[in-house]
Simulated scan of single mutants.
Amino acid sequence: MKKSISTLAFLIFIAGTLMISCKSSTKEETESQEKVQDARENVQDAKDSLVVAKKAATAEEWKAFKNETDSVINDNKARIAELKLKMKKTDESIDAKYQKNIDILEQKNKDLKVKMDTYKNDANSDWQSFKREFNHDMDEIGQAFKDLTVDNKK
């Protein structure tokens, strides 16, 4: 009888241990799933915050870029007006090519102004590409101004 009681006690102990361990495993699994879900929500919140922060930084950068380029465009406009004034002051006949180059510069400057005014700074636009292309166009106009004043005739 002692043997059967100790065997029965041992079996009850084993069964109890298995039941307790199964329950805690399910509980741990549920807790793990909750932690994973919380982590996913935190990641999504972080992504949303990054998008907002990136947008704000881009808006500040856009404003600074726009102010800078507007200043350069206005300087170009003044230089073009100055060149036209010089042409009127001189009584000599100006090359038609020189006049054409000034007109081309004026048109390019106007095109840049229109391009700047029509650009929409939103999430769908490619800011870096626009900025690179616009700076390239600005550099071309700057070089054209330099080339206009250089006399290559010998």
Rank of each mutant, 00 (worst) to 15 (best):
M1P: 11
K3G: 02
S4D: 09
I5R: 05
S6D: 09
A9Y: 04
A9M: 08
A9L: 11
L11A: 11
I12E: 07
I12H: 04
A15E: 01
G16C: 07
T17R: 04
L18W: 02
M19K: 03
I20R: 01
I20Q: 02
I20N: 01
C22E: 06
C22L: 09
C22R: 12
C22T: 07
K27V: 10
K27T: 09
E28N: 14
E29L: 12
E31N: 14
Q33T: 07
Q33M: 12
E34M: 09
Q37F: 10
Q37A: 15
R40F: 15
E41M: 04
E41Y: 14
N42D: 15
V43L: 15
V43T: 14
Q44K: 14
A46G: 12
D48Q: 09
D48M: 03
D48K: 08
A53H: 02
K55L: 10
A56K: 11
A57M: 07
A57W: 00
T58Q: 13
A59Q: 15
A59H: 04
E61Y: 08
E61K: 12
K63W: 08
K66E: 05
N67D: 14
N67Q: 13
N67K: 11
D70N: 14
D70G: 05
D70S: 11
D70T: 09
V72P: 00
V72R: 02
N74W: 00
K77I: 06
K77H: 03
A78Y: 02
R79N: 11
I80D: 02
A81L: 07
A81M: 06
L83G: 00
L85W: 01
K86E: 06
M87R: 11
M87L: 13
K88H: 04
K89I: 10
T90L: 08
T90A: 12
T90Y: 04
D91C: 06
D91V: 13
E92V: 07
S93A: 05
I94P: 01
I94V: 12
D95H: 03
A96F: 01
K97T: 14
Y98G: 03
Q99N: 09
Q99F: 02
Q99G: 04
N101V: 02
D103F: 10
E106A: 12
E106Q: 15
E106T: 05
K108W: 10
K108A: 08
K108R: 15
N109R: 05
K110W: 00
D111G: 10
K113C: 00
K113I: 01
V114W: 01
T118E: 13
A123G: 09
N124R: 11
S125V: 08
W127H: 04
Q128N: 13
F130H: 01
R132T: 11
E133A: 08
N135M: 03
N135H: 08
N135G: 00
N135R: 06
H136D: 05
D137T: 06
D137S: 14
M138F: 07
M138A: 04
I141M: 03
D147S: 12
N152L: 15
N152C: 05
K154C: 15
